[in-house]
Amino acid sequence: NPITQSQFVPLGEVLCCAISDMNTAQIVVTQESLLERLMKHYPGIAIPSEDILYTTLGTLIKERKIYHTGEGYFIVTP
Rank of each mutant, 00 (worst) to 15 (best):
L15I: 15
V14R: 09
L57Y: 03
I47G: 04
L11K: 01
S6D: 15
E36N: 06
M39P: 06
V14A: 11
Q5H: 13
H41W: 08
Q7A: 14
C17V: 13
G70C: 12
S6M: 15
S33I: 07
R37H: 15
K40L: 09
I75K: 11
N1H: 08
I45C: 08
I19D: 00
D51P: 10
I19W: 00
I27H: 04
E32K: 11
V76I: 07
Q31L: 11
L60S: 02
V76L: 11
E36Y: 04
N1R: 04
N23D: 02
E50K: 15
L34A: 00
E50Y: 10
I47S: 05
I27W: 00
M39D: 13
G70I: 06
Q26T: 04
Y42G: 05
I52P: 02
P10D: 11
T30R: 04
H41P: 02
Q5D: 12
G58M: 13
N1M: 10
I27L: 09
L38V: 12
I66A: 02
H68N: 10
L11D: 04
A46Y: 06
F8K: 07
E71K: 11
P48C: 04
S33W: 00
I47V: 14
V76G: 12
Y73C: 02
P43M: 04
E71G: 10
G70V: 12
Y73T: 01
E13N: 05
N23Q: 03
I27D: 04
L11W: 04
D51F: 04
I52H: 06
D21M: 05
R64T: 05
G72Y: 01
F8G: 14
S6I: 05
L53M: 10
S33D: 03
I45Y: 12
P2Y: 15
Y54I: 14
C16T: 13
Q26P: 01
I52Y: 09
G58A: 11
E63I: 03
E36D: 12
G44R: 12
I45G: 06
P43W: 04
G12I: 12
Q7F: 14
P78T: 04
Y54E: 14
Y54F: 13
S49G: 08
V28S: 11
T24L: 10
N1D: 14
E63M: 05
L34E: 01
P10G: 10
P78M: 02
L35N: 07
L34G: 00
T55G: 14
V29F: 00
P48Y: 06
E13M: 04
I27E: 08
T59W: 14
I47R: 08
V29W: 01
Y67E: 09
L11T: 03
V28R: 13
G12W: 13
Q7S: 10
L15E: 01
R64M: 05
D51V: 04
I27A: 06
Y67S: 07
G72E: 11
R37K: 05
A25C: 06
C16I: 15
L38R: 02
K40E: 12
L38A: 01
S20Y: 06
G70Q: 13
I3Y: 15
G12E: 14
K40N: 11
I66K: 02
I3G: 12
N23C: 02
I66T: 01
S33V: 07
F74G: 06
L15V: 13
D21W: 04
I61K: 06
T56Q: 05
G58C: 15
V29E: 02
I19Q: 01
Q31Y: 12
Q31K: 11
P43F: 05
F74D: 02
E13C: 03
T4V: 12
R64Y: 02
Y73A: 03
L53N: 01
Y42K: 15
I75P: 05
F8A: 10
Q7R: 08
P2L: 15
A18E: 10
H41R: 08
P48Q: 02
E50S: 10
L34F: 00
I52T: 15
Y42P: 07
H41M: 09
Q26L: 03
L11V: 04
T59F: 09
P10C: 12
S49K: 07
D21K: 05
T69W: 02
Y67Q: 11
G58D: 07
E32M: 06
K40C: 08
S49F: 04
I52S: 09
M39A: 10
Q7I: 06
G44L: 07
I47F: 11
H68L: 10
A46V: 12
T59E: 15
I45L: 12
K62T: 08
T77R: 13
T24A: 13
T55P: 03
L57C: 01
I45S: 09
C16W: 07
G58V: 14
Y42V: 08
T59R: 14
L57T: 00
P10M: 11
Q5Y: 08
T4K: 14
I47Q: 10
T55H: 08
I27S: 04
V76W: 13
V9Q: 11
A25E: 15
I61M: 14
C16K: 12
T56P: 03
E32R: 11
L34N: 00
E71S: 09
K65M: 08
Q31N: 11
Q7Y: 15
G58N: 13
L35S: 08
T59L: 12
G72L: 00
L57W: 00
E71H: 05
Q26N: 09
G12P: 14
E32V: 07
D21Y: 06
L11R: 00
Q7M: 13
Y54K: 15
I47H: 05
G72F: 01
T55V: 09
M39T: 11
I45A: 07
V14N: 03
I3L: 12
Q7E: 07
K40D: 14
T69V: 03
S6V: 12
N1S: 15
T77C: 06
Q31P: 15
E32F: 04
P43R: 07
V28Q: 12
P10T: 14
V28F: 05
M22A: 00
T4S: 13
T59S: 10
T30Q: 01
Q7P: 11
Q31G: 11
I3A: 13
N23H: 02
K65C: 03
F8S: 15
H41E: 08
V76T: 08
L11A: 02
E13I: 03
V28W: 03
Y73S: 01
E36I: 07
T4G: 05
A46C: 15
R37G: 03
E50M: 15
V76Q: 06
Q7L: 10
I27M: 09
G70T: 15
M22Q: 02
P10F: 09
N23K: 01
L38M: 08
M22Y: 00
A25V: 03
A46L: 09
